[in-house]
C-alpha cells in the first residue's frame, strides 16, 4: 500500500485540467494562506474536483467536501493531489 502510493506521482492542483479530480495528499505554503486552506477544508485526504476556471483563466473553482471553493492558481500551486482515474481503475 505504502509503496504503491509513493510510486504514484503527485500533481499540483493548478496543473489540473477542468473536470479532473483527485485526493489531496499534501498542503504546502506558509503561514496564513496555509491556515486558511485548512480552515476551508483543504486538508490531506479530502477529495477535490476542478469544476472550472474563471473567464480570465484564473482563479479556479473546485468542488471540495461537498461545496464550491474558489482559489487562485498561485494558491493552488501548493496543493499536491493524487489524480483519480488516470492510473487507478
Amino acid at each position: 500500500m505504502q509503496t504503491a502510493e509513493n510510486e504514484r506521482a503527485l500533481v499540483a492542483l493548478n496543473q489540473f485540467e477542468v473536470g479532473q479530480s483527485g485526493v489531496i495528499r499534501q498542503v504546502g505554503g506558509d503561514g496564513r494562506i496555509r491556515r486558511r486552506l485548512f480552515d476551508m477544508g483543504v486538508t490531506p485526504g479530502a477529495d477535490v474536483y476542478l469544476r472550472k476556471r474563471a473567464p480570465l483563466g484564473d482563479p479556479l473553482e473546485v468542488t471540495l467536501r461537498n461545496y464550491e471553493l474558489t482559489l487562485r492558481k498561485s494558491e493552488a500551486e501548493v496543493i499536491m493531489v493524487e489524480l483519480d482515474k488516470e492510473v487507478r481503475k
Binding site: R32, I33, R36, L37, M40, P59, E61, Y67, E68, L69, T70, L71, R72, E75
Partner: peptide
C-alpha cells in the same frame, strides 16, 4: 492578498 473563498449555491 490571498483569494480563498466559498462560492455559495
Amino acid at each position: 492578498p490571498p483569494f480563498i473563498m466559498e462560492l455559495p449555491a
